[in-house]
Design a protein around this nucleic acid. Sequence first.
DNA 1: ATTATACAAGAACATTTGTTCTGTGTCAAA
DNA 2: TTTGACACAGAACAAATGTTCTTGTATAAT
Lengths: 218, 218
Amino acid sequence: MTLSPRQQAMLQFIREYVETNGYPPSIREIGEAAHTSSTSVVSYNLNILQAKGYLTRGKEISRGVRLLQTGSLPETVGDPSDMIVRVPVLGRIVASEPVPIPDDNVSPLDVEDSIALTRDILQENGPVYALQVKGESMIDALIHDGDIVVMKPDSNVRDGDLVAAWLKVEKATTLKRFFWEGKDRVRLQPANPTMGPIYVHPSNLEIQGKVIAVIRQL
Amino acid sequence: MTLSPRQQAMLQFIREYVETNGYPPSIREIGEAAHTSSTSVVSYNLNILQAKGYLTRGKEISRGVRLLQTGSLPETVGDPSDMIVRVPVLGRIVASEPVPIPDDNVSPLDVEDSIALTRDILQENGPVYALQVKGESMIDALIHDGDIVVMKPDSNVRDGDLVAAWLKVEKATTLKRFFWEGKDRVRLQPANPTMGPIYVHPSNLEIQGKVIAVIRQL
DNA sequence: ATTATACAAGAACATTTGTTCTGTGTCAAA
DNA sequence: TTTGACACAGAACAAATGTTCTTGTATAAT
């Protein structure tokens, strides 16, 4: 993933400016450093840098530029402690729609919403994202309306994984534990032990991610 | 050198804002946090904080506030970031025993087990503690074996609070939403909407705390 | 009672600042 | 040659934002 010389210059200037001044530069100050008087050129390039994961921008916020440490998606962002993991909240999970899956090319930092977790909750090192549950349809997974489900976009499942699965025939998303039963049958087991499993043909389901934590605030 | 409560609130807000957003707040945002709509009050107090060495201000620069290392407020116990809240895990919550209630003098450092949460999860400022659920008895509260329940030791309940209640006659702990129904009857409502409530006489129950968050790791 | 200081409030205004719009140039692909 | 993508430029505009001004209250010191 290569950057143009002007983009590199902008990143470098922002980094130095923050270190010197303690707050980020304005669009016009970045433009001066990159030898352009056009604020739209600066904005255009900053949007590219954001899409590539080098920084985030506050929308219509003065000096709303924040450098990220690396460009990978999604990741720990700017917090002083490695203990904190900021997880983007990409939207809602509802039973009647497939789970929104993060696009590798779109910066999660476009999202306005995120939740800070810690390494005590989340030992995962790979990309993770969160969704907020809408509706009561997940109660068989002991997940309540409003809960935040933390997921990783991994469709390689092993027996016992709690997965978000899209059932094509039923046109429904479900959160259940996944078990192979032979080659032609998958058992989806609710977390609620008083409820029975459902059985589906593998072709009927699409694994959209694994649930790795649930956060409920009251 | 003492600071007024409003000045302390402003410092705290700025610190948290920078850590969350990566750039400083505006005068108006600081004012909102300090409960004043007057930008001149904010500016006046920031000038005092600057004179006292807590921060510097860029002249006529938007978001031109920079906290200085010296003069910052004492940090949260043990962690570098005020964003992190370390919550002691005092033990297990099981249906057949009362909830362990923390000694008021306990410090998070005194307990061997704790979990780090963040202010995104836990806005509470008072004492909190956590318990790990043992067994399936809490599934009517949509809480699974192994979940971590974060509580505050507050027995002053209002309708709708999710409480840990010890039922004396039944000798059982239950987690349910609490509602008064007249003076002589309390309705304890499961979080699972498919399950019915139970009704108890107030003398039969002992409120041992309120649940303020649930953490599930998979 | 008066004065000084600290702190506050709201309004008005000026400046800073980011976004949008329109247009241009370069280059590669069709 | 035409088209589309990319990068750029400048102007205009709207919104964000900080400063200044005037007025007020509370408290302590004189």
